[in-house]
Write a protein that binds this DNA or RNA. Structure first.
Length: 210
DNA sequence: TGGACGATCCCCT
DNA sequence: GGGGATCGTCCAT
């Protein structure tokens, strides 16, 4: 019984890490799992292998120019989902981090598909199903695969049917590669992109290793 | 009220 | 490797 209570305590405790600075949280999210249960009961799961940190003090962040209707969720409680729409056709998902009132988050750039690959392929209208690494190796791709759109903006990731399961133990430091972020013009030298070393499910892995 | 642009992806060359 | 698709958001008139 004491054991059970300590497990519950640990879970609540580990969730608190999300209130840390976004670059700290970014590292901690690597190896954690995103789980979606669809209305029909199908389970989709992916292990987070690539992330980017954003903060209100950082010119590349949506929250840099202050709280607006669009960025409101970023300034809310940690552990909620900030979903934004971009390029007229894509959604991207962030885990909100930091204290309430502070606009920060971690963009999930890629996951390694674990469960529900067929459904992910359908959601992605994926033609070549042998290339499973192309299902979720980009921020908009994983949103499409998981069926995440703007209706999920503000969702608490501790709640079904879309949950973030924090890994029990952080990854070893030498398993994490740190680089500048992708596709931004402001603050492009800030090294706040993190990914798991030599993981084939990281975005652009194939083209960069050719 | 309008115009520029974007934390992307995919197809074509 | 380059460019088009496509529309919400924000800022300047």
């Amino acid at each position: 019984m004491a054991y059970c209570r300590s497990m519950v305590h640990d879970t609540a405790d580990s969730w608190k890490v999300l209130t840390s600075a976004s670059d700290i949280v970014a590292r901690r999210l690597l190896g954690s799992t995103l789980v979606r249960v669809l209305p029909g009961g199908v389970r989709l799961a992916g292990r987070i292998v690539e992330v980017e940190a954003y903060d209100q003090t950082d010119a590349a962040s949506h929250s840099y120019r202050g709280r607006t209707p669009r960025t409101d969720v970023m300034f809310g409680p940690a552990g909620h989902l900030y979903v934004y729409f971009t390029y007229g056709m894509h959604y991207c998902a962030n885990v909100v981090t930091g204290a309430e009132g502070h606009g920060a988050g971690v963009l999930i750039r890629a996951v390694e598909p674990l469960e529900g690959l067929d459904t992910m392929a359908e959601n992605r209208q994926h033609r070549n199903r042998s290339k499973t690494h192309e299902l979720t190796n980009g921020p908009a791709k994983l949103c499409q695969a998981f069926g995440i759109d703007k209706t999920w903006n503000g969702h608490d990731l501790r709640q079904e049917p879309l949950r973030l399961e924090l890994s029990q133990t952080p990854l070893e430091e030498d398993m994490i590669v740190q680089t500048p972020r992708i596709g931004i013009k402001q603050a492009k030298d800030v090294p706040w992109r993190f990914y798991i070393r030599e993981n084939p499910y990281v975005s652009g892995y194939v083209s960069r290793t050719r």
